[in-house]
């Protein structure tokens, strides 16, 4: 198989990989908000629930999550398409990881900030939205971008339950052409190439935000 042919067959999966990664990241980032808030709550029960969610989502391998959702739930006549099942599974998982990123961000804000907000009689909500959250964001952005790249690679497992992503396209092409070496090197290169601009964006955004808010003097 020639290089352009191999590339075009793999490239057909880029859209699905992008859909999987971006959707799972966005949903995960949203679900992660209540999880992180529970994790740092003053109420022990909420802390336990948040912590358990994080442990379980990270304790079970991504591919097993997808199998439970895709094959397991079909026992209850709940049928997802392979892409939807993958988005559900990867969102559940990424929420656990992103919740920990949020928590790291919150922990990076010195406790004196909280005290100053209290001493100025700011309400808890105002102290969070106006003082803590903007500063936490500075720590969150680079971690979140790094996780996004991790999720991009994790999304390859969706191919095992039939999502037609980069890896699935590469596998199909390698079986057709019997040229697995070239095709899988190329597939790996595509993942690498996609992650390069994302990482660059992450560094740029991180620097931009840090400069704008000048948090670290």
């Amino acid at each position: 198989m020639n290089l352009p042919g191999a590339f075009s067959s793999i490239a057909a999966g880029i859209g699905t990989t992008a859909t999987l990664t971006i959707s799972s990241f966005v949903f995960g980032a949203i679900i992660a908000i209540p999880v992180a808030l529970a994790r740092v709550s003053r109420l022990p029960l909420l802390r336990l629930i948040g912590g358990t969610y994080i442990q379980i989502t990270r304790g079970v391998p991504p591919i097993v999550w997808l199998f439970v959702i895709y094959f397991g739930l079909s026992q209850f006549k709940i049928h997802f398409s392979s892409v939807n099942a993958s988005i559900v599974g990867l969102s559940v998982i990424s929420a656990g990881y992103i919740a920990e990123i949020y928590r790291a961000g919150l922990n990076s804000v010195p406790s004196g900030q909280q005290e100053a907000a209290q001493a100025l009689s700011l309400s808890r909500i105002s102290s969070f939205t106006n003082v803590t959250a903007p500063q936490a964001l500075v720590a969150v952005i680079p971690l979140a971008i790094a996780y996004f790249i991790g999720l991009l690679k994790d999304s390859a497992v969706a191919s095992v339950i039939g999502a037609q992503d980069i890896t699935a396209m590469a596998l199909a092409a390698s079986k057709r052409s019997m040229d697995g070496l070239l095709i899988f090197i190329l597939a790996g290169a595509v993942y690498l190439i996609i992650s390069v601009p994302v990482a660059a964006f992450g560094r740029w955004a991180g620097a931009k935000i840090a400069a704008r808010w000048a948090v670290r003097a």
Partner: peptide, 27 residues
């Protein structure tokens, strides 16, 4: 009861004026 801290605890993401405005507006 106003308070000043040893480590100042100014809000680093806000300008001097914004630091002084925040509680006036929010509280």
């Amino acid at each position: 009861v106003g308070m000043c801290f040893q480590s100042f605890n100014l809000f680093p993401h806000l300008t001097a004026a914004e630091n002084i405005m925040l509680a006036q507006v929010k509280a």
